[in-house]
């Protein structure tokens, strides 16, 4: 037990209260409010962050369970001065409206593209063995854990597709 969690490369002391979710730790304790709370029950994806390279709902896990883990939040993916490719593509394609689901969408998409690169299949994959194709259906399926009530899905898919195709 080191009681230390790394957030965007900065070591942080884990909270004393074992009830504190990773989400509340990020938002309330260390002021990283880019990660959003939409439901607190793992139902919306607004709180998606990347832990040791894997996307998770940070509301569904306690901070205390992440001793020694490396967490990347939206603030760690890019900044207003140096936005990531996905952040730029979301802006260009208007992949959001109110912006509340957006950090979760972008964290999710970042890790999702890695999942495709790692050949993880999904429900939309034609073939469980071969590498998944970057179809619209594949992106939609893999992004369906991130709700957007503004209904920006069509633009979200376009933004992700553009980045995926550029890096392919």
């Amino acid at each position: 037990m080191s009681d230390i969690i790394s957030v965007n490369g900065t070591p942080q002391r884990l909270p004393d209260d074992p009830r504190t979710s990773l989400l509340d730790f990020l938002r309330q304790h260390i002021g990283l409010t880019g990660t959003k709370k939409g439901c607190d029950h793992g139902q919306c994806g607004a709180c998606t962050v990347i832990v040791n390279g894997i996307r998770i709902n940070s509301c569904l896990t306690l901070a205390a369970m992440h001793d020694g883990d490396e967490v990347t939040t939206i603030e760690g993916l890019g900044t207003p001065d140096r936005p990531s490719d996905l952040q730029k593509a979301f802006l260009e394609h208007d992949g959001f409206q109110c912006g509340y689901c957006t950090p979760g969408q972008i964290c999710s998409a970042t890790a999702m593209l890695q999942e495709i690169a790692n050949d993880w299949p999904s429900d939309a994959s034609e073939d469980l063995e071969g590498p998944p194709q970057l179809t619209g259906e594949e992106i939609r399926e893999r992004m369906s854990g991130n709700l957007c009530r503004c209904g920006a899905y069509a633009n979200i898919v376009a933004a992700i597709r553009e980045v995926a195709e550029k890096s392919a």
């Binding site: 709370k37 603030e75 890019g78 936005p83 802006l91 208007d94 959001f96 912006g99 950090p103």
Partner: peptide
């Protein structure tokens, strides 16, 4: 593109809470 968009995509736009 939205002029406040960069703040939204980088998680720097502050909402009420």
């Amino acid at each position: 593109p939205r002029i406040e968009g960069l703040a939204k995509v980088t998680g720097t736009a502050p909402y009420a809470a």
